[in-house]
Design a protein around this nucleic acid. Structure first.
Lengths: 205, 205, 205, 205
DNA sequence: CATGAATGAGAATTCATTCAT
DNA sequence: CATGAATGAATTCTCATTCAT
């Protein structure tokens, strides 16, 4: 077996163990047993348990980051709607393709340690900023509602995260395409068909 | 000091320690030091570390659950919009009132152990079901868009969670009322002002 | 058993284990077994294995340092010879009184780790400086041979260390008083009764 | 590269690594890296880490032992003084020539393991015995002070060891010739110019 | 012979929980 | 009841040595 092959094997099994048990309950013992290597072998490839976890998450967020493409409203070939839904589709597709890592990202990555939390936050910040900027562009073109773009970005993130969380952690089975469509539709028109309440307006200070 | 007083003190300090460090990094030592009691005393009031964590989270989700009120479309006194936004307001208010526990709920509660995860999931299920039923009612009355009510419920949950997450964990400061309004507005009309793409339409089954 | 009593117990047994096995071969396990306490108890009293070793050595060198008294040539009550031999006697006495720790000091303390080596060196420096200064004083008074006082100091140290090393590590049994007398005599008149060789003088550059 | 050349290279680099880090902190990894051979190669030439250390020390003490020459009082060509100082000179010269190994011998060789300690002790015994016999011869000829020859031998050893220790481990720089002269002078006449104290004399048995 | 990846025994340390006072 | 010292199971990581290529 080649060196990088064994490394890869460890990464895959570590991912599965982390996904199954969570970071803290996952023991190095479990990983090496799953990978069928000796305990010491693990440390030939990774400095420690945190390092392999970090690599799993980092690779994944790098892949995600690469697949969020800025929307170009002047693109002749593809409409804005197409580009937006393509973005959603790509992200959802990556997340569903590697469910174990998505589970790790959504459920375990937070709280591993403060330094790692910062890294995670900076990823979400990055995603947020990218989304926010796209939304501002969209506002100028009149295709995004006037309003707090940062807020929209966060809410979009929340929608995607929660949906994937339900699908992957709770086994809520839906075809990928349906998920993409539902997100798109939700962003496009919300769901409430009521006017803002007057009493609320009155309570404002 | 009275018995229940001492217990309460432990709960409060445990909450703060858990919020600051996360479940695993929070040591029983930290909790008893903060509460100013002896280590052994802790075990007079709580079976183990998990038990106190559980109680903190359970109390909080019970409080939250109590404050999600079924929308009554026939209520003469309050419009549906009012009732919906009241629900959002109450929940956001509870979450912001006890930021430490909200932080625990959003960032630390998941992954403590499988049994606890199930409990958490069942809480979110409950919330989801309640929301879903309300949305179905709304659909019959034409005040909620036709579509997958469970999906709407999940997305709503995602929006609320992510927003609170940003406000509490990332220090994204916004007045409570603004948060409530933004959520309401988002649910009401989304933000995208584009038509669904044709290519997507073609793929529909 | 009192807190400080247990600490003391650990120190004594650790000393014996270190003396018997040396720093590296001494396992924390051995120490706690000897002391009859649980493994974790060890860490209640000492941060780690190095800390207890450090304390053993530090206490001992502090005791030694305290017992090297500057020779006062104007002392009416005690002659210089008395004072010198008293110094030797005190040091030898302390070293022979606690043979285990002397063994540790002479055979194991060096090479534990670089930081610890520095500490040891600084102790020997201190002793050397004290001795050197006394010797310089003695030179002014004509009771110490003219020559490199630092060199004399080092040689004195060497004589004491090697003699004790033989007595303690090699079981070379001699009464304390004999040891003291022999050292004194050696310092006083050496043992060679030959003239420096001429050839040596010629080789000088 | 030839077989014996590779072996030699390992010995030299091992010596340097042991001198720099001490036996326990020196890793086989460090040695093979320094020697530029593969890890497995090390074990083709040496049974284990201890074996190479042993060989380094053994070779060195063999060389030292060879260079301690019995003093011949009837030698017509060289005076006793010459022969004694030649002995000192040869030993000091060997020790200073290979400072790395001297450092190992003085600071690291002790405490590696009990069997090795015994070997070291037997070397010092041998040296001691040789010295002692020479001193006894000297006593018969009236060129060595009456007294415990074994004691004189040990003290001589101590003087040489401590002086070299200071020069090599503490960087106390002195020309070789000065060192030899100082040792010789010290052995010849000590440095104290006081009479033995009376109180001490009274205690004598 | 040389290589260097793999091995696994072994040690230190942590910390939730217990229990004698 | 309260205390806090004692416990020891559990886990991580290191590194000398082996062995297949």
């Amino acid at each position: 077996m080649e060196k990088s092959e064994r490394r890869q094997k460890l990464l895959i099994h570590a991912r599965d163990v982390f996904a199954k048990r969570g970071y803290h309950a996952a023991k190095v013992e479990d990983i090496v047993t799953a990978a069928g290597v000796a305990r010491g072998t693990f440390y030939l490839y990774f400095a420690d348990k945190r390092a392999i976890f970090e690599e799993i998450v980092d690779r994944f967020i790098a892949k995600l980051a690469m697949n969020i493409v800025r929307v170009d409203p002047y693109d002749q070939a593809r409409s804005v709607a197409d580009q937006v839904s393509e973005n959603i589709r790509r992200i959802v597709s990556i997340l569903l393709e590697d469910r174990a890592t998505t589970k790790i990202l959504l459920a375990d990555a937070l709280g591993v340690d403060p330094a790692f939390d910062r890294r995670l936050h900076s990823f979400y910040d990055e995603v947020g900023k990218l989304l926010e900027q796209s939304l501002r562009d969209g506002q100028e073109l009149g295709i995004v509602e006037i309003g707090d773009a940062a807020m929209y970005a966060i809410m979009t993130l929340g929608v995607v995260k929660e949906l994937l969380y339900q699908v992957i952690l709770r086994g809520w089975d839906h075809p990928e395409e349906t998920i993409v469509e539902e997100i798109f539709t939700f962003l496009r028109r919300g769901y409430l068909r009521v006017e803002p309440s007057k009493s609320r307006a009155q309570k404002r200070r």
